[in-house]
Each structure stands twice: as structure tokens, then as C-alpha cells.
Amino acid sequence: MATLPTMLKKELLETWRTYRFLILAVVVLIFALMSPLIAKLTPDIMKMSFGKTLQLAIPKPTSIDSWTQFYKNMTQMGIFVVAILFGGTMSQELSRGTLVNLVTKGLPRWVVAVSKYISLVVQWSVALTASFLVTWGYTAYYFPDAKTPYIWQGFVPLLLFGFFFLAVILFGSTLANNSYGGLLFTILVVGGLYLVNLFKAAQNYNPISLIGNNMALVQGHKTLGELGPGIAIAIGAGLVLLAGTVILLNRKKL
């Protein structure tokens, strides 16, 4: 237990010095800035390309367009960037043998897994919250309308889905012996969840529901309570995966 803060510090130093956190933060901030920008420019771009030939009534962009861009960017590109940045977090330690020195000094293996998970969750939370606030600010400035009143309701499920997703990445990274294997596992899991989502009966329980309903939540067409089953499953599965990571790591040869 006493070694947990030590290892957490090591993880944070690692992500800082290997530029991983910097990349994550900069990339999600870029997405955050692009969301209101694209929403704002879309009509102009359409006008420039078709305007002269086609008499289209192009609707004026609203805050809905801005937030739609944000959630589209985050749930597709954002998640993918997270996966490739952190897919090697455990597999690299295992393939390089960097844990041998520490474990033979008495470091409990569960501390390795838990400190990595906490560090991932912290990075995701900080980066996502920062980009959320940026999009919020610009959206409020450029699109001062009342069409997206429930901003936090859209944000919370995405944050929670991230926690689940990070547990998938960590488990995959521990399971595989190289970072590509971990990435493959993550892609398979998410692909599987999207397949399950084809069945209507399962949709409500699917963690994917946490990144599929954000706009409905923001506009007030849905409430967080309706996502309850999906949230519960995501958190439960995340904990199971974390426990699984510890068990896997305990059996690994270093």
C-alpha cells in the first residue's frame, strides 16, 4: 500500500517525459477548438461549394452543431488516440523486463496495475474536462442559444465510458506481449460491443450507450437515469477488468 503513491508518481513522470500526456492534451484541445469552428464554418463551406449553382436554404448553425462535432470527434478520434497512446502501457514493461528490478525489491504486483489505472484515469479526466470546458466556452460565445441546456449530462457518460475503455486497454496490454496485441484486443472489444448494439434489447445495457446518446442528453431528450443500466455495466465491467489485470499480472513471468 505504501508503494502506491511512489508508483503513481513514477507513472505520471513517465507519461510526462515520454510526451504521452502532452500529446493527449494537445490533441483533445485541438478537437475541442475544431468543434465550434467546423460548426460555424459549415454553412460558409457549403455556400462556397454549391451556393452559386444550388439555391439551398442553409440553416444557421446552432450550439447543437457545435456539441455534435465535439462528441463525434471525442468518441471516434479521441478514443482512438487514447488507445494508441496507452496500448503499450503494460506490455512495454513486460517485454522490456523493467518490472523485474522493482518486483524483486518487494513491489506488490497489484500496485503496478492499480497505479497504472489511476494514472490513466487522471490523464483522461484532466484532458477531457479541459477540452470540454474549451468547447463549452466557445460554444456559449458563438452560439448563444438555449438549445443545449443539459451540458453536463452529455459529458458525464463520456467520462465514465473513458474509465471503462481504459480498463479494457490496460487488460489488453497485460494480456498481450506487445503493444499491437493490446491495441488489437481493445479494437475487438469495442467492435464486439458495437455488434451487440445491433440488438435492440441489449442496447440499454451496453457500455456503448454511454457514447451514443450524448446529444440526446445535452438537449434534454433523455436523462442520465435512462442510461443507468449501461452506466452500471460499464463501471462493473471496468472493475472486473481491473481485477482481471491484477490476476493476469500475478501469473505473468516478468
Binding site: K10, R17, T18, G97, N101
Partner: peptide
Amino acid sequence: TNRITGYLPDVPAFYGYM
């Protein structure tokens, strides 16, 4: 028992960023 043991692996691996 690792508390009273020291180990030097054949190829010791460290964190290069430290």
C-alpha cells in the same frame, strides 16, 4: 525474502526517461 535479497539480471532493464 526479497527484502534481504538483491538481484542483478543478466540484462538489467531501466526506465530510460529517468
